[in-house]
């Protein structure tokens, strides 16, 4: 754990360095383009988180072990956090580049719906009642929501005709230094995700231990 924390800290520093100093300034957008790296980092983590929600939801339905449920819940929460960051950074990036905070571009629409879906996931959990219900209903919703995403994306594309290329700085070629900065950032964010996920699962473990002791002792 200590090593992991150190690695994460170190790679975050490296990422900040490479984003702000190492990577060249983009010619058309200028410094604003540097938002892009962290934006990609957050969307990358959010994607991993939601894939993990999907996988652990399936595993929970199959095995019904608390571990999978904790994993799904913790990933979903982190996913919501990071997708929120994605939308905020993306919006701030879009304002100077596209001249608007928000457009109903397919990628944005899909991200927005993804965000709503996993907020609904959290609402469902809090409304579900006891632990077994929470876990099972959330797992069902997690699976259905994930299956829905490709269709949401395709239908958002259909509504707007063919989408312009959004990702990739300016849609043009990417300098090798930028690529390195991006990769370092993705690595740093992945490590950050693992650290946060572990902390989050620890909290659930602690809650479980406390409630099981209480149950045994009848406090």
């Amino acid at each position: 754990m200590r090593i992991l924390l150190g690695l994460t800290f170190f790679s975050m520093i490296a990422s900040i360095y490479s984003v702000f100093i190492y990577a060249p300034t983009e010619q058309i957008m200028g410094h604003v383009q540097r938002i892009f790296y962290f934006h990609m980092g957050t969307v990358w983590v959010a994607t991993i988180a939601f894939i993990m929600v999907f996988i652990s939801s399936i595993q929970y339905l199959r095995k019904e072990s608390r571990r999978w449920d904790k994993l799904a819940y913790s990933s979903a929460e982190l996913g919501v956090l990071f997708i929120t960051l994605t939308i905020i950074t993306g919006s701030i990036w879009a304002k100077p580049v596209w001249g608007t905070w928000w457009t109903w571009d397919p990628q944005l629409t899909t991200t927005f719906i993804l965000w709503i879906l996993y907020i609904v996931y959290m609402i469902l959990r809090s409304a579900a009642g006891d632990d077994a219900k929470k876990a099972k209903f959330a797992a069902v919703f997690g699976i259905i929501a994930f299956l829905d995403l490709p269709l949401v994306y395709i239908s958002a594309r259909m509504m707007r005709g063919i989408s312009p290329v959004v990702f990739g700085p300016g849609g043009g070629g990417i300098a090798p230094e930028m690529m390195i900065a991006l990769l370092v950032t993705l690595l740093a964010f992945t490590l950050l995700f693992i650290v946060l996920l572990k902390q989050r699962i620890d909290i659930e473990d602690l809650k479980d231990r406390i409630s099981s002791i209480r149950l045994e002792e009848g406090i």
């Binding site: 719906i113 709503i116 609904v120 829905d148």
Partner: peptide, 12 residues
Amino acid sequence: ILLFPIIIPVIV
């Protein structure tokens, strides 16, 4: 709340 976000592709 559960259903509407999911059925967006259907409605669209």
